[in-house]
């Protein structure tokens, strides 16, 4: 009986830790651009409800 209670206490303590231990997905690969080859940097963008994409360049 004591053993079962200890196991339950242990389980209830460790479960939240296990949940918290779940690691987020970490992105491994990135697309980049050659800064020397582009004409201007993008310094802003916005998307309208009908999927117009506005871009602000330097």
């Amino acid at each position: 009986m004591i053993r079962i209670s200890l196991v339950l206490i242990f389980y209830s303590c460790i479960t939240p830790l296990l949940v918290h231990a779940q690691e987020p997905v970490v992105d491994k690969t990135r697309l980049e651009y050659d800064e020397d080859m582009i004409e201007s940097f993008q310094v802003g963008m916005c998307v309208s409800n009908d999927q117009k994409f506005g871009v602000f360049f330097t």
Partner: peptide, 17 residues
């Protein structure tokens, strides 16, 4: 010194900041 671009409500205008 461009900072931001935003669509206004209903996408009627663009705000250039």
């Amino acid at each position: 010194n461009p900072r931001e671009i935003l669509f206004t409500k209903n996408d009627s205008h663009l705000l250039l900041v």
